[in-house]
Design a protein around this nucleic acid. Sequence first.
DNA 1: AAAAAGCTTTGATCCAGGTCAAGGCAGGGC
DNA 2: GCCCTGCCTTGACCTGGATCAAAGCTTTTT
Lengths: 252, 252
Amino acid sequence: MEPATGTHAALAPIPANNAAGTDINPCSACPVRSLSVCSALEQEELRRLAEILVNMKVEPGHTMFSEGDKADMLFNVTSGTMKLYKLLPDGRRQITGFLLAGDFMGLSVNDTYAYSAESVTQATLCRFPRRRLEALLEDYPKMQRRLFAMASNELAAAQDQMLLLGRKNAKERIASFLLLLSQRAVRRGFKDNPVHVPMSRSDIADYLGLTTETVSRTFTQLKTSRVIALMEGGKVKINDRDALQDLADGAA
Amino acid sequence: MEPATGTHAALAPIPANNAAGTDINPCSACPVRSLSVCSALEQEELRRLAEILVNMKVEPGHTMFSEGDKADMLFNVTSGTMKLYKLLPDGRRQITGFLLAGDFMGLSVNDTYAYSAESVTQATLCRFPRRRLEALLEDYPKMQRRLFAMASNELAAAQDQMLLLGRKNAKERIASFLLLLSQRAVRRGFKDNPVHVPMSRSDIADYLGLTTETVSRTFTQLKTSRVIALMEGGKVKINDRDALQDLADGAA
DNA sequence: AAAAAGCTTTGATCCAGGTCAAGGCAGGGC
DNA sequence: GCCCTGCCTTGACCTGGATCAAAGCTTTTT
């Protein structure tokens, strides 16, 4: 049994019905479960593992861990949105990614986290001792394969983001961002239009390498040109997807 | 035997003494060899694989593959420097990384390359059918592990680069770049000072999200303030590593 | 319901780095 | 040797997005 650690004291463990013995649902997104899809992971093994999982629920703005902390825990997002970011000493921030249900965080090559993680919305996560995963990987090579595929996908996304940060202008960045959110929504079976944009202007700015003012002005421009419409509840209606796509590709 | 494909026609296969049966040197960097370090890969297996490897030598500026090409080949750099980049339709370019001896390129989740690859200097590479690697991974799980570690490292580097591109100014970018080159040199057992900078101003600019003019001016500034000295042969002498480090971290 | 605290938007101004233009300098071909 | 070509550097100017400032709007507190 893992006792709640100091840094995670504020986290409320969910009493939860996904304790040991729950049915194996590939998409319910706990690490064991999402990874077990393609492995011959056995019931008994799964049951043992479920015992060391800790499900937790956090409010918006809760810091899960910070860059440089000892990385002995691994998290799997089960609902809500998280943000990963890096800071410069003077406070400048770069958000490297937003995570949704099913995404992993906390994987690390050396023994400290390479970034900080904070909740954007209310979120639920599944915590898991890193060592245990490593042990699991020894026994179930197919999990390793799955993990590698995940890392490869993240890497491809990171390369797209480098192109955006290094070479796109403000309008192109916002267009790319909206399409990304829209595509991710589709992939997860949610409605892709209007797009739900749960993060603040400041988070968007720090993700796109802009300022809140520029983000706001650019949204206004896109709204004025009828490409999008801003709706209440942080929703954005995409009126002209082709125009947005051309902008995002830098073709316009 | 793999016939030379159309796109690789210009590549000169090296007659080479690293054909089948050569000694197994972990750091000689062909994929089989560098991966075999931590696997129980057997002599016989290795010998069979060496037969399908194609060693090649390319001149500076040679395109190995382009974004969108069918990704059926995998490459391992054995000497020289390569660059990976993405383009926007209007020609804006973002270099996502420079590869040195021992680095892999061409790994891809779907079946097309996500970026283009071109040689910066004269370089030698080892070409390898992707399918063959996949088959190998089935049999040797530890290779998978190694590959995952590589992808994780690349991912961490990509996140550092996002911070650089999104939030650092020109001086901080150049400082970070020089320190990166220096550190990589050390890790590979080369002299780290003066640093060898084999790429053109234009490549540096496209890697750092700047223009050639700004790169040039910034080098001049650092030279004027005695932090570095520009030497002949594309070498840069680091005079004040601490100052450079403070700049790179955004602490100055 | 009023006050307070945070976002978000909009406006006015500024400046780091981009753009445009012109030399400088080194290597290669003849 | 001398031109040609392709970097690299430097200068002059411009601009997209940052910065600074001030309202709106929303949400929370009391």
